[in-house]
């Protein structure tokens, strides 16, 4: 508990500092003085604070979504970006944009979530059918499935000249976040809280179907609940800022190494860690080539793949 408070404090400080980083110059003194600089306040309220909130919400919810995916697939190497979930959500968005462009964003998001749900369910069904000779087969199946869905998306997007939109959905970038364009993400906070409420169920489901049945719980229901949470979170992230790769993989794995898989204990840490990871990626993206920006997703890809390789080698060392 103490460690968690400390970690939360660090996150708050870094988050506060991140508000001051950007092309337009800002300083606390200009903001908190008795006669605050109008323009500075404007920048803060319209751009910086929404951006920070989007970063935190995306990090928290994608981290927890990754954790749930890992429990449902009973495999450490899956997350929404390696299970066809994100690709399906993009396809859903494309379908909605092409076939019903007049729909409000919320409805399009709903369609994307349905596609994500179907894609992830398909992934889990495939897993039930194939013999799993190695733990690595599971993410490979997901990546192949994602690749197939992605190529369908690209094909149609190319025809309809929507490649640029698709790119925005698949590459998470917070530079476009403004007040009025990210608020959908607040729903993910609700979903994260729902995941926390159902934490024990997910832990039990992570021990397998008969374990779950023995304890009097309905395995199917837990899987459906998990799928709904994961799909909705992914769809919302894809629609608002775009997918952040590796986040749902790295953060839950690191937390699991340190404190195990009891979701009641680990969800708060995964949420915090996810927020921290995206915050760092977004901050780095803003300062590395100042005044230009590198998308957060690109940095997450680089940092994430390095960390992931490290985890993979470490795990193998433990097993072999």
């Amino acid at each position: 508990m103490k460690r968690f408070t400390l970690a939360l404090l660090v996150l708050v400080v870094v988050a506060g500092a991140s508000l001051l980083v950007g092309v337009g110059h800002l300083s606390w003194s200009a903001l908190v003085s008795p006669t605050p600089d109008e323009r500075a306040v404007q920048v803060l309220v319209v751009s910086r604070i929404p951006r920070l909130l989007a970063v935190l919400l995306v990090g928290t919810s994608l981290g927890v979504a990754g954790l749930i995916m890992q429990m449902l697939a009973r495999n450490r190497f899956v997350e929404p970006a390696t299970a066809g979930t994100a690709e399906s959500a993009s396809l859903g968005m494309l379908a909605a944009t092409a076939l019903a462009p007049q729909l409000p964003v919320l409805a399009k998001m709903g369609i994307a979530a349905l596609f994500a749900l179907a894609g992830t369910a398909l992934f889990l069904l495939i897993l039930q059918r194939i013999p799993l000779r190695s733990v690595l087969v599971v993410p490979l199946v997901g990546i192949v499935l994602g690749g197939i869905i992605d190529s369908v998306t690209t094909f149609f997007a190319h025809r309809m000249e929507l490649l640029q939109s698709v790119n925005a959905w698949t590459t998470g970038d917070f530079s476009t976040v403004l007040r009025g364009r990210y608020e959908l993400l607040w729903v993910t906070l609700g979903l994260t809280c729902l995941a926390y409420v159902a934490a024990d169920r997910f832990t039990v489901a992570g021990m397998g179907e008969s374990f779950t049945t023995n304890l009097g719980l309905r395995y199917r229901r837990i899987v459906v609940l998990g799928l709904v949470i994961v799909s909705m979170v992914t769809a919302m992230v894809v629609v608002t800022v775009g997918m952040i790769p590796f986040l749902g993989l790295i953060v839950p794995n690191v937390v699991s190494l340190v404190m195990g898989d009891n979701a009641r204990r680990s969800i708060p840490w995964v949420a915090l860690g996810g927020a921290g990871f995206v915050l760092v990626c977004d901050l780095l993206g803003r300062v590395v080539r100042f005044p230009y920006e590198i998308p957060g997703a690109t940095l997450a890809g680089i940092l994430g793949s390095l960390l992931f390789l490290h985890l993979l080698l470490r795990r193998n060392a433990r097993v072999g």
Partner: peptide, 28 residues
């Protein structure tokens, strides 16, 4: 689940739980 409990021959080792956490789930 309040009348009958089963231990299977092969037990799952997918989740990293502590012994106490596992046993506590027996009370679920």
């Amino acid at each position: 689940a309040r009348r009958l409990a089963i231990l299977r021959q092969d037990n799952p080792l997918t989740a990293r739980l502590t012994v106490r956490e596992l046993v506590t789930f027996g009370r679920y």
